[in-house]
């Protein structure tokens, strides 16, 4: 799993694009967008082991939460 930064100098612009994708949507529409986004990114990764590892990791509570 890639824990280190993989976005380089484009991190801020990618994050901004993600926020812009949600602009003007209701909360329900945003949830739907997120679900589609996760499914599409899963398909981009395409590797079952990696996807399952990331799913498990995302499910683990973070210390800050």
């Amino acid at each position: 799993m890639i824990l280190e930064d993989n976005l380089g100098p484009e991190g801020d612009s990618i994050y901004t694009a993600l926020m812009q994708a949600h602009e003007g949507l209701t909360e329900a529409q945003s949830h739907a967008l997120n679900a589609r986004l996760v499914l599409m990114l899963i398909n981009e990764v395409g590797d079952a082991d990696r996807i399952k590892a990331v799913l498990q990791e995302a499910r683990t509570p973070t210390p800050g939460a």
């Binding site: 824990l3 930064d5 976005l7 994050y15 926020m19 973070t62 210390p63 800050g64 939460a65």
Partner: peptide, 19 residues
Amino acid sequence: LFRNEVLNLAATHPFARKL
């Protein structure tokens, strides 16, 4: 929500710190 999850992830996932 995204902002808070970036902050929560940052402790254990270095990539999130850059965001």
